[in-house]
């Protein structure tokens, strides 16, 4: 049984917060250093919140909780996000 979704499940919820599509950004895991597209993360949820884990070490890379009128985004498991932008 697959317990998780892939990182593309973050596209809609994160588009409420960011102007760019974060799932195509490259993130680096704090725990193991693996870098890859946000879309490649393993996503658990959606309730009580979205929990995106590193496909290499399974540590939490990103969490997103959506309450009424508020979203909480936790990126402490992410070293950086590389976002490609038009020149």
């Amino acid at each position: 049984m697959t317990e998780h979704l892939d990182g593309n499940a973050l596209a809609g919820p994160l588009s409420e917060i960011f102007a760019v599509d974060v799932t195509s950004a490259t993130g680096r895991c704090v725990s193991c250093g693996l870098a890859g597209p946000v879309a490649s993360l393993r996503v658990y949820g959606p309730d009580p919140g979205l929990v995106a884990r590193c496909p290499g070490c399974e540590e939490v890379v990103l969490r997103l909780v959506r309450g009424p009128g508020t979203a909480w985004l936790d990126l402490r498991g992410t070293v950086s996000l590389r976002v490609n932008l038009p020149e």
Binding site: P48, A71, D74
Partner: peptide, 18 residues
């Protein structure tokens, strides 16, 4: 969950969700 927006105590009778 308490560090990601959920209530620190979480009493359902007082609806302490977030």
């Amino acid at each position: 969950w308490e560090t990601a927006g959920y209530h620190n105590y979480g009493d359902p009778w007082r609806e302490q969700r977030y």
